[in-house]
Design a protein around this nucleic acid. Structure first.
Length: 484
RNA sequence: GGCGCCGUCGCCAAGUGGUAAGGCAACGGUCUGCAAAACCGUCAUUCCCCGGUUCGAAUCCGGGCGGCGCCUCCA
């Protein structure tokens, strides 16, 4: 069983063969921390989290590195605007980022290196490039000589001459060639800086990923991941400077996720959540109204390379699905969960087949629908069979498989009953609703039903339904849920 | 101008040569005092359009229409 991975460099799917059998090093380009992360940021980290989880599930020992770019023009600019220390600002948004990631069920990477803590490595790398004339210093800046690296453009499939003719780069006399990019930038007054052989300054944008990935994963390493927008110039430049310096391949496989686009689906409240067109929507804003697991489910509902149209309606649909699957798992767990059974092999094979094909989470999720619905069917059956009957064995085996597979995706991996209760109470709190008042109403309604005063009972239910609370009668009593 | 992506049921979405997964919604049914939930069933002879290749195409090729991205600091 092999894993096929769509490699941007080769431009096609290819078998993932690790450098060292059984081990995999993966580097995911992390955020520049100058503000809250937005939905677009949520995508790569969620998608590649699922990839890492699956690779581990498949038996690989994975070393996952994801950097924080905490030294950057945007951070400095934002800090100046707010009269704040750039490092303090950056550190604050790193914390916020970690919190968002946790809400999305994203596991922490094994290493999360920061640029500010790797100046020696960065300076050493630039020094090497300068020494071999692959880079040159100019007025305290250092530039990479793009023409000196003949593989330039191989990742983004562009040729250097096309780039030059179409370049919207202003003519700059300090550079030998307009395509050359900065490895090191001389410090301007008031900016943070480090001492270097070229004077006081700070790293350019691309160099940190080259230096830190080499330090933690070696050269070459297996998989380099990031958003599609980073292919050019960021990743192209990483390859150029790394391969020029080390004289060997940089990363062996490149995977890139597609964009999240904001779409107005015309379903009323869309504007409220996506603000005006072009405004970036933060993860935090979404979490104020929705569950992180719903957002994760939405992000994994399409293949990671395809574009994903984000909308309030899409999120509502995802949320409904999250709840309904938990409902099925709860019912099945209550009826069959007492005894353990090994996971159904067919279901696992189906799941793995989808994931092995370039981590197709959408396909994998689709394949779990059948066992899930079978599980619901078995859980709904009235006549209790003996606990050792064939059907019960089947149910336990399906339940084990579904829980195992969804767990790999980082979805439906909590205790269903606790999860449903938690969802209900947090949503209630968000809406300013006291669960106790609902319970009181339920008691009142139960009394009305007992005395067969159905008009009264229906009135109570209708009143709460108008407030978005649905009362549901079950053999075990009346429960309720909140309609989003 | 250069490079690239996308267009599959009302909505989301998988499928990249072998005769259209799945989810949501909708509709019918079981259950229920009635509902809801849950469960059962129905729901694309067809994949933006036109041509071509092929025994066979949503899938490959050519053209068109529509949407989108990148081309120096944006995941």
């Amino acid at each position: 069983m092999t894993i096929q991975i769509h490699d941007t460099l080769r431009g096609e799917k290819t078998e993932l063969v690790p450098l060292v059998p059984g081990q995999l090093g993966i580097y995911v380009c992390g955020p520049t921390t100058y503000d809250f992360a937005h939905v677009g940021n949520a995508r790569p980290y969620t998608a590649f989290d699922a990839v890492v989880r699956y690779l581990r599930f498949s038996g690989f020992t994975v070393k996952h590195a994801r950097n924080f770019t905490d030294v950057d023009d945007k951070i400095i600019r934002r800090a100046h605007e707010r009269n704040e220390d750039p490092f303090a600002l950056s550190a604050r948004y790193i914390d916020e980022f970690e919190s968002d990631m946790a809400s999305l069920g994203i596991q922490r990477p094994d290493v999360a290196p920061k640029v500010s803590e790797h100046l020696p490595e960065i300076i050493a790398l630039i020094t090497e490039l300068v020494a071999t004339d692959k880079a040159y210093a100019r007025h305290g800046d250092v530039y990479f000589r793009v023409r000196a690296f003949n593989g330039y453009g191989k990742l983004s499939h562009r040729n250097v001459d096309d780039l030059k003719s179409g370049a919207r780069v202003e003519v700059d006399d300090t550079k030998d060639d307009p395509l050359d990019f900065a490895l090191w930038k001389a410090a301007k007054p008031g900016e943070p800086f480090w001492e270097s052989p070229w004077g006081a300054g700070r790293p350019g944008w691309h160099i940190e990923c080259s230096a830190m990935s080499a330090k933690y994963l070696g050269q070459p390493f297996d998989v380099h991941a990031g958003g599609k927008d980073l292919v050019f110039p960021h990743h192209e430049n990483e390859i150029a400077q790394s391969e020029a310096a080390h004289g060997k391949e940089f990363a062996r496989y490149w995977i890139h996720n597609g964009f999240v686009t904001l779409s107005s689906d015309g379903v009323g409240d869309d504007a409220k959540i996506s603000k005006s067109k072009g405004t970036l929507l933060t993860i935090r804003a979404i979490l104020e109204r929705f569950d992180g697991e719903a957002l994760r489910a939405l992000l994994l509902s399409t293949h990671y390379r395809n574009p994903l149209a984000f909308s309030e309606q899409a999120l509502l649909d995802a949320d409904r699905r999250v709840e309904s699957v938990y409902t099925t798992l709860e019912a099945a767990g209550r009826k069959f969960g007492a005894r353990a059974e090994s996971a159904d092999e067919k279901v696992m094979a189906q799941f793995c087949e989808a994931m092995n094909d370039d981590f197709n989470t959408a396909e994998a999720l689709g394949r779990l629908a059948a066992p899930l619905s079978r599980l619901g069917e078995l859980a709904a059956k009235k006549s209790p069979k003996s606990p050792t009957s064939e059907e019960e064995r089947e149910a336990r085996s399906l339940l084990a498989a579904v829980r195992k597979a969804t767990g790999v995706l980082g979805l439906w991996d909590r205790d269903p009953a606790a999860r449903l209760l938690e969802r209900r109470t947090t949503v209630a709190a968000r809406l300013g609703l006291d669960p106790a008042t609902v319970e009181t109403a339920i008691a009142e309604r139960t009394a009305a039903r007992a005395s067969r005063d159905f008009a009264r009972a229906d009135a109570v239910r209708a009143a709460w339904l108008a407030k978005g609370v649905e009362l549901m009668d079950t053999p075990a009593g009346t429960t309720w849920r909140i309609l989003l």
